[in-house]
Design a binder for these strands. Structure first.
Lengths: 198, 198
DNA sequence: ATAATGTCTAACAAAATTGTCAAACAAAGG
DNA sequence: CCTTTGTTTGACAATTTTGTTAGACATTAT
């Protein structure tokens, strides 16, 4: 009896993650993904039945990746500034691997046929509680006063955007690959300075 | 002799702009676009020959839209802060119509076959000169000191990102359409406060 | 060895998308 | 009215992408 192993299945998911969220090619064909994974395209159907179900599997993976990273840190019992610093660091780290993750999820949202829609992103986020914590820090005068939601939106914006428009920015600012890489590596300090008012 | 008019042609471009950059459905089919425009799909081929060339026409339109808006303002001879304020305002305004423009351009970059590549975005940007102006303001101590490129990246990030992840943010923060709309309308003040240190 | 089970592949079928063409139609000039 | 020119359409062809199936192959238990 051949022992059931899911290493090919996982390898296909990993590759699809890479194609979708690292390279940003959200409409890659099953053939593209099979090629990237170095497997026969039929295997995608063998393991996932259809392209849609591969998508589901990959996006489930993405959801876990995106949630795990933030939720844990946001609920750690450490000082606020330290917490944000860890969050920024971990987020930037993930962005280096999957720069297009948020963008892909949004795009996928847009193209969904309304069926499962909000089925995604139901993994009990710690956001509500953390927004209260932000409010508390504002009351104490430790950070600029505004709606806590804006604080988070600012943070996410400053983190994610430079990654998803990398090619555009390189053009606009006339930067080489290496130069942009350097800029990206400076983001942590820049963001912390901006958020906490230097 | 039937007078040549390009109103259908323009209507198709306008519709494609809407589908791509307002709805964010970058891989809409020619049928999708024809339906949205209320015309026969064959007309797309009559006017643009192929899907690719429709793309080119639309992206040329997008380039002009994106460039015109910023270049003019960035080279106006008005005080720095006033200039940024006008820029933010105009940018937010355009984002309300075409929230997915930057994202689509980036995605298109990613999926390009390397041929024309950088042919896009060659419309002589005023960015170089404006970066110098930013540096000048930093020297005068009017804004936080950092590399001017970061100043611009911060600005673009804070402006664009909330629009392109709108559905995701609504989920994450548990906001309704109306509530998010309200948040978006507060962005101008929030961004100006943050950029100019309250 | 062989039976059983899971993995993989090639060939084929089906569906979706894009592209072509001939002809119908409309407007304007002669 | 007829011609000319530009526009629009439906029917069809080509291409691309997805999905299915039957069988080959590999591993392991009996």
């Amino acid at each position: 009896m051949a022992t059931r192993d899911n290493k090919t299945e996982q390898h296909i998911i990993d590759t699809a993650m890479r194609v979708f969220f690292s390279e940003g090619r959200l409409n890659a064909t099953t053939q593209d993904i099979a090629d990237a994974a170095g497997v026969n395209r039929t295997l995608i159907h063998y393991y996932f039945r259809s392209r849609d179900q591969l998508f589901d599997a990959v996006f489930e993976c993405a959801r876990l990746t995106a949630l795990a990273e933030s939720n844990n840190i946001l609920s750690e019992p450490i000082p606020f500034r330290k917490k944000i610093e860890k969050f920024v660091e971990s987020f930037l780290n993930r962005l280096k691997t999957y720069p297009y993750l948020e963008m892909s999820i949004t795009t996928a949202f847009n193209e969904m046929k309304e069926e499962k829609d909000a089925a995604f992103m139901n993994g009990r986020s710690r956001m509500k509680e953390f927004l209260k914590e932000i409010q508390h820090e504002m009351d104490k005068g430790n950070i600029r006063k505004t709606k806590p939601v804006h604080f988070m939106i600012n943070l996410f914006s400053l983190l994610v955007y430079p990654f998803i428009v990398r090619p555009l920015n390189m053009q606009l600012f006339g930067l080489t690959e290496q130069e942009y890489e350097k800029i990206v590596n400076e983001r942590k300090k820049v963001i912390m300075d901006l958020i906490f008012g230097q």
